[in-house]
Computed example of a mutant assay.
Amino acid sequence: MSLATKLDQLHLQARSNRWLWLFAIFLRVALAFGFITSGMVKVLGNRFTVLPDSHPMGNFLEAIYNTGFYYTAIGVFQVLAAVLLLFPRTVILGVFIYLPIILNICLLSISVRFEGSFVTSPLMVLANLYLLCWYYHRWKYVLPFAQNPAQPQLPTWSELNPRFPVKFFAGVATAMALVVLFAFHGYELMPRNTSKDCKMQCEDSANPQACITFCDCIHLEGQPLQKCLEAYENAR
């Protein structure tokens, strides 16, 4: 059995379940809502956050804001991707526009340890990947291996299997739990949004004074995150 045939069978099996079909609709609406709200802020020319320039994410967003039409263009593409997701005929185009944007946001959030999107952005990436797999039959022909000439007939709503896929949604819950655990325990230190919030984590730190040094480095001195982490290691 060829790889293309195996992928077609897995895809058809997933598309035959009513709960997975409803889950795809839910993700489309949820992802669209997330980008419409954040994208319109940029389209209207408003600042995305009130974080100070001393904060790593605040410094980045302020720089992006001051680029002018580039900042607006990001918002336009976010809103465009969101709107395309809502319509069945354009959903796959929305997925392909949405994915690089949210992946960039996810990598940025992790690199600067921004708690505002430290959990949501990885989950949105996973949701986007689910939709990419859900609409596999529309884009599979770009893959670098031979495809079956006969397109499998997808079942209609009345033909869908109503059985609840316990294992699948258990996997979804596990993935969400792992993302949350990483957000709270993946790093020893987080810059947090304010100096007060940052120093609250110092109470449970193995070296409270070094932690306070890190927070002051971020919020009072406005130094880059990597430099403040080096200062923390030296203070230890």
Results as ranks from 00 to 15, higher is better:
residue 120 T to H: 08
residue 1 M to D: 13
residue 13 Q to V: 10
residue 185 H to V: 10
residue 171 G to V: 05
residue 204 D to L: 13
residue 159 E to A: 14
residue 192 R to Q: 13
residue 201 Q to R: 12
residue 155 P to N: 05
residue 98 Y to K: 02
residue 203 E to Q: 14
residue 29 V to T: 03
residue 115 E to I: 15
residue 227 K to C: 01
residue 232 Y to V: 03
residue 103 L to F: 07
residue 132 L to R: 06
residue 211 C to M: 08
residue 53 D to T: 15
residue 141 Y to C: 00
residue 152 P to E: 04
residue 101 I to H: 06
residue 225 L to V: 04
residue 165 P to S: 09
residue 32 A to S: 15
residue 228 C to P: 12
residue 99 L to R: 00
residue 210 A to I: 10
residue 158 S to P: 00
residue 121 S to H: 10
residue 149 P to A: 13
residue 71 Y to M: 01
residue 2 S to T: 15
residue 46 N to L: 10
residue 209 Q to R: 13
residue 98 Y to A: 04
residue 52 P to C: 05
residue 107 L to F: 14
residue 180 V to T: 06
residue 227 K to N: 04
residue 130 Y to R: 07
residue 183 A to N: 07
residue 62 E to W: 07
residue 230 E to V: 14
residue 221 E to P: 03
residue 63 A to R: 11
residue 53 D to M: 12
residue 13 Q to L: 14
residue 2 S to M: 05
residue 117 S to Q: 10
residue 50 V to Y: 12
residue 90 T to E: 05
residue 213 T to R: 11
residue 17 N to Y: 03
residue 179 V to S: 03
residue 120 T to A: 13
residue 31 L to F: 04
residue 168 F to P: 08
residue 109 S to Q: 15
residue 147 Q to R: 08
residue 19 W to L: 04
residue 31 L to C: 07
residue 9 Q to P: 04
